[in-house]
Design a protein around this nucleic acid. Structure first.
Lengths: 228, 228, 228, 228
DNA sequence: AATGAATGAGGCTTCATTCAT
DNA sequence: CATGAATGAAGCCTCATTCAT
């Protein structure tokens, strides 16, 4: 005992250090030496535990994606109508990104690499993640509250926006002073983006409210005249 | 003759090759040797023209960002009401990304690096780019067609979504077959995303249409009853 | 066992190989590859131990200068009147140069480079080295055996001559045959130079011996006549 | 016309620039590009004029050594007794070094390289240079004013000291402040060294003045007793 | 003669990975 | 398990030199 715990702790420390390092500088930019130092283990020790840089990266991906999928499922399971669920999704993702700043970076870098290092097992996590959005939309269309829309578009509109907003933080911060002259606030918190998305996408995807009868009648009449 | 032309061509060839390489594998992943080979010049020749890897990268960024700013400005200048202008913005960006597949990748990678290699001159281009969105929104609020919204949020909702959709292409393609079982189409063209954004963000940002008089009257009456 | 010994040995071997290489061709002429080969280690191994070419050079300088200072102090500590001490100094230096042929070369090359790579720590060794000569001269002036003279001039007359004589060896050797026609022996051993310096500088710096009484009397008388 | 002048001027400018560069950083440290820039010609133009780096270096050496030989011969030809001639030699050399600061550096660096790049023609200049010292000494022994001594030792004692003093200037300057605490003046001008050498070597090489007769008699008597 | 543009060879350094203890 | 010490394979960059104009 202790031993196994210790072993688990060491592995965890390594994975966390690696996540930070990979998120900071990407796969090719990350140095095994730096990860080992950050994790407080010897370089050779790291190899003993994880095999090699590639396997380490895959383990990091798997761990993170599982966390993402779990968090999103949980957030959506809280209930609420489909519109609210989309908002919950965005807010949950923003929460994740705030807690794990390396997460959006790794997601972006991994996508940019074309999934070069994506382990097969991670695909299963993807499936879980996409399913969440798809189910919300299906529910919304079924109950008439949402217009039909491609789930991938909706999903990436939410997640993509949050990723890029997180990613751009250092740049926005650097540009913030100069941007104030333009009347732009570049340093708003990520949570604000989630709220914005919840509101704007919610409205944008909402089905038209049924017009009041007199209006509808007037509208139809007009249309008749035009046709004539 | 052709001397000056040739020289310009060489630099251009180098910058294009570099853009592709940097977009493919990022700054640290890119190999100067590969860029030179791709550009059809000797490695030393490349150094003769561009100084070093870092300067090369900066030149690439500057060139691309200038292209982006120019294209967006042009697209929006075509006129149209603010809602249409946002759509034009999204479609212009999508067009750029389709023509220059390395562009969204470089943008993402550069953001991920915290702008580590961003030349000061590139900030000026950023200013132009953000200004476009800000002006559309200001116009929309002024003429009453749009709700007020943070320009940065809107801008990144459009651009971020397009970036991540582009970025995720290889991964979506790889996952496409498996996703069909889930009822998901992962391989829709980027233009579809632009249309989706134009539609959804347009609706989401539109100000409420004034209700028809009878409805409004009915609504007010109801409110009176509730107050009582 | 032997680990620590071996490790120490490796560093020592590297420093010795580097000293020879730097002495042979100077800093810019020395190739890290050659030093590593000569030391029997891998190039990367050399970097593991010493960091980089510059640090390697500094370590070499420090080691050599410490040896010089130690040897000179020891030689002079043997006692003897100031005139003998200067001779001992010259002979000790000549002995060092004979044992470490790269030493005069490195000293010359380092001076020629303006001390570009001189580590701050080496200045402390310089202080020790110069102090030796200064103390001898001070002692000689105090006991009346030596004329006052600038310590730096004396020091560099001894050391500079020995350095240049050592440095010029290959050239003298090459020129030796042709020079015999001129009645010049260019291939005399360095020890001869030390003896020559001991003798000549000894005489040159000696205070006038008190003339014998009759001579002095005669001299004074003459002076009187001249004054008159 | 003009053309040939111009050509001559260009070559001269190149040789001067090269002398400074080689003196500053040695053969391997010197960059053809830097020499060309300093001489105000194109790199390819430099090659057109001088062939290659090695030939350029040889031309520089030849030019400098011829200047040295000429100056020394001239200085000594001014006449004066052998002791004064040695002083004149030292002062002439010091004058040369003051006017051409790269000269002592190049001499040292060339010696350090074992004459690797020394052109055969330069040997003839060496012969002239050494001959000067040899002749003075021979004259001094012949007229009884100087003790016999190896010409090479004397020559290098003078020249070597001046070379090393010149060479060490930057280092002495850097160390000067710290050395003042030790009672050392490290920043005395080179001319002082020449004077010191003239004085000290003059005394050191002077033949013994004949002792006054009574003293000599006493001395001989003492020696007899010791023998007994 | 002069110049901008190459280019091959080689040098310094880094880094993922392994080995011996 | 842990660690200091290797090592081969690159990667970035420089530089002497040449070529075409």
């Amino acid at each position: 005992m202790g031993d196994i715990e210790e072993a688990a702790t060491v592995l965890t420390r390594i994975l966390e250090a690696a996540a930070e390092e990979f998120g900071r500088v990407g796969f090719s930019g990350a140095k095994v030496e730096a990860i080992a130092r950050r994790a407080g283990v010897n370089k050779a020790g790291l190899y003993y535990h994880v095999g090699n840089k590639e396997k380490l990266y895959e383990a990091v991906l798997l761990r993170l994606f599982a966390q993402v999928a779990g968090t999103l499922e949980e957030a959506v399971a809280q209930g609420g109508d489909p519109g609210q669920a989309l908002g919950a999704l965005a807010r949950a993702m923003a929460g994740l990104f705030a807690r794990l700043p390396m997460l959006p970076r790794i997601m972006a870098l991994e996508m940019a690499s074309g999934g070069a290092h994506m382990p097969a097992a991670a695909l299963a996590e993807f499936r879980r993640i996409f399913t969440v959005t798809r189910d919300i939309l299906a529910r919304g269309v079924a109950d008439g509250s949402l217009r039909p829309a491609e789930p991938v578009f909706v999903h990436l509109a939410l997640v993509g926006t949050l990723i890029v907003y997180s990613l751009s933080e250092p740049l926005r911060r650097r540009f913030a002073d100069a941007a104030r002259d333009l009347g732009l606030s570049l340093d708003l918190p990520l949570a604000g983006v989630a709220d914005f998305l919840a509101e704007t996408m919610g409205r944008g995807l909402a089905s038209e409210p049924p017009a009041c009868p007199p209006c509808a009648a007037a509208f139809l009449e007009e249309a008749d005249h035009e046709d004539a």
